[in-house]
């Protein structure tokens, strides 16, 4: 720890010499503790992503190889038939399709309903506003395990149990209070003059919302889209309970559970199925990393 202190204090007053020689020995030596820390952390990071690397490698091995030498990550020769087995035999193509439909429609519904609710809550006083806000905040942390029985009961009574429609409505209906609060917080600080001048120009209530306010809130929409995408793609409890008697409607997460229940010894197939299910979110994360981080960090800054 002492070495860290010295680097800090010396770094604070950079002399002419260090500025001239970026790569001088003294500077490198002072940076050494940080390189050591980075090395340790890189080791930790490797351990951190190891389960995914193992999964990827197991998906390219045949089952005998997975059982015998699972420590070596490189397969002797890449076997792609595991993917074929998971994709068509185990119906992961169907599960993928279900997941995409459910996720896309849910995201659209959530963005629309949360933007509208956030807009009026953040910008207008109205009769019953306090009640609405109190109810939303009070139920912010209600766990799925608590509400699942009435939710199934309602969906059953609506005749929507065992259908993707029912799943979508339930997923977009419950929760997402944070998205409403995000929108409300954003719309609250948009200056009044904006809609006053629009009113003078003859724009009505809904036109102002749709043409002026919603485009302004693009960063919030991006965050809400991303977070809702993630929570819906990864949802498990509700899709599980909603598809008990309709295996063809399973989403990826539920299909995975069923797959290992039926094929306990097909490790390579399991790994391929898991890879198929995880690749979309991981690719999205790597591409939109900054947005992800900002989206999650936004929650704490409020």
């Amino acid at each position: 720890m002492t070495s860290v202190i010295t680097t800090r204090t010396r770094e604070t007053a950079p002399t002419e010499r260090t500025r001239r020689n970026r790569w001088s020995t003294g500077r490198l030596l002072r940076r050494l503790p940080w390189w050591l820390i980075a090395l340790v952390l890189l080791g930790g990071a490797l351990l951190w992503v190891y389960p995914f690397l193992w999964m990827l490698s197991a998906s390219l091995k045949d089952n005998i190889e997975v059982f015998s030498s699972s420590l070596s990550l490189l397969p002797e020769s890449a076997v792609f038939e595991n993917y074929g087995r998971a994709w068509s035999d185990a119906n992961f193509s169907g599960y993928m399709w279900n997941t995409i439909i459910v996720t896309v429609v849910t995201v659209v519904l959530v963005v629309i309903r949360c933007a509208m609710a956030g807009y009026v809550i953040g910008r207008y006083g109205f009769f019953g506003k306090k009640t609405v806000v109190v109810v939303l905040v009070a139920t912010l942390f209600v766990p799925t395990g608590y509400t699942i029985i009435p939710v199934v009961d309602i969906t059953q009574q609506l005749g929507l149990l065992n259908s993707l429609t029912g799943m979508i409505i339930a997923l977009s209906g419950g929760g997402h209070v944070a998205a409403i609060l995000l929108y409300a917080g954003y719309f609250r600080q948009v200056p009044r003059e904006l809609e006053e001048s629009a009113t003078v120009d003859g724009a009505g209530f809904f036109t102002i919302f749709l043409r002026i306010m919603l485009p302004l809130a693009k960063p919030i929409t991006a965050t809400v889209t991303l977070l809702t995408f993630l929570s819906t793609w990864n949802a498990f409890f509700l899709p599980l309970v909603f598809t008990f008697s309709r295996p063809d409607l399973r989403t990826l997460s539920v299909g995975m559970q069923a797959f290992v229940g039926e094929n306990t010894t097909d490790w390579a197939g399991m790994a391929a199925a898991a890879t198929i299910s995880l690749v979309p979110v991981i690719v999205l994360f790597v591409v939109l990393q900054r947005r992800f981080v900002e989206g999650f960090a936004g929650a704490i800054k409020q």
Partner: peptide, 24 residues
């Protein structure tokens, strides 16, 4: 790079990770 690596598990599907970990 480090931040990405340590954050990666967060975005993955919990139910799938649970199954994979059963094998790990």
């Amino acid at each position: 790079l480090l931040r990405t690596a340590y954050f990666l598990p967060v975005v993955t599907t919990t139910a799938i990770v649970g199954v994979v970990m059963q094998f790990v």
